[in-house]
Amino acid sequence: MSSLDIFTGETIGTAVLILLGGGVCAAVTLKRSKALNAGWLAITFGWGFAVLTAAYISGGLSGAHLNPAVTVGLAVKGGTAWGDVPVYFAGQLLGAMVGALLVWASYAGQFRAHLTDPEILAAQPAEEGMVDQKTAPQAGPVLGVFSTGPEIRNVAQNLVTEIIATSVLVLAILTQSTIGGVLPTDPKGPGVMGALITALVVVGIGLSLGGPTGYAINPVRDLGPRIVHALLPLPNKGGSDWGYAWIPVVGPLIGGALAGGIYQLAFA
């Protein structure tokens, strides 16, 4: 596949992933949404369906990595050329930002209603100096729609959780008989079932390991929307919690590389 195919497929696929995944977070979180307070099950299954849809759409172009951790794991395995890795990363980050913008466009009225609601505003610190930096360092009231955050802020635990969860995801992908990612270049054959299996793995990870950190398991899934949150002119949006932002980037990349190494040792 060409670099253009890779970049196009990853941009479109990751945009769809974030649109549907971030969309379910918005639906469950924001005031005046019909799915308000639908809960963790809705979020985990919503992200699983997001992976499934994005993989089917982009698999024929790029192999549907949709995740730098998957790309790294495949490169370590030997299924992806290291020279293609920056192209995958670029498409994935751009797609994640586009997807986050589409979530905002789809829920613009709900964002406005939520961020101007007196009850929501009353729950936020009145001044930046009132924020406890150890427990809630400037995470705004809608940041969870865009990116992840820990329930208990402990750098070592949060990092280990993301490494473990991502290792499970990437190893599950690497051990499927696919070409280049979740789907082969020709999306006929075992890759089609592989996309479904991967989506169910994402649901399982969310149910089992998502509690501590919100299971980013994908650097651009967190970083791209976090950048968009920082740039959007949302009233009373609060901070983007950049002090935590490196963990859902570094942890999944380590997890992807670790899964690739495990594959080489145990399965190759």
Rank of each mutant, 00 (worst) to 15 (best):
T8C: 04
T175S: 07
S177L: 05
A27S: 12
L258Q: 03
L30F: 05
L231E: 09
S167H: 09
P68A: 01
G256M: 09
Y263M: 15
L30V: 03
G181I: 13
D241H: 06
L4A: 09
G256S: 08
L93P: 14
A266W: 04
I18H: 07
T135D: 02
R221Q: 03
A90I: 07
A26K: 12
V228A: 03
T161C: 10
G91E: 03
A199K: 02
G21R: 10
F267Y: 13
P86G: 07
L17Y: 02
A15H: 10
A100L: 10
I18F: 06
A268S: 13
R221F: 08
A105L: 14
S2W: 00
H229T: 11
M97C: 12
L94W: 13
V168I: 15
I227C: 12
A216L: 08
L183K: 14
A35S: 11
V70Y: 01
L258D: 01
R32M: 01
G238Q: 03
G210Q: 04
F267W: 14
V103L: 14
Q92G: 10
S58N: 08
P125S: 01
R112T: 14
I197Y: 04
V51L: 04
A268Y: 12
G59N: 12
W242N: 00
Q157I: 15
P233V: 06
L93G: 14
G99V: 12
A27G: 13
N158M: 06
S106W: 10
D186V: 15
G95S: 08
E10Y: 12
P184K: 15
D186N: 12
Q264Y: 02
P235A: 08
T213K: 10
G211I: 14
L232P: 05
E162N: 06
Q138T: 11
Q176G: 08
V76W: 00
T178I: 13
T161Y: 00
P248T: 05
V76Q: 07
I12R: 09
L209S: 02
G91S: 07
G238K: 05
W242G: 00
I43W: 02
L207H: 11
G21S: 11
W104H: 13
D5T: 02
Y263L: 12
L66H: 07
E128Y: 14
G63D: 08
G13H: 10
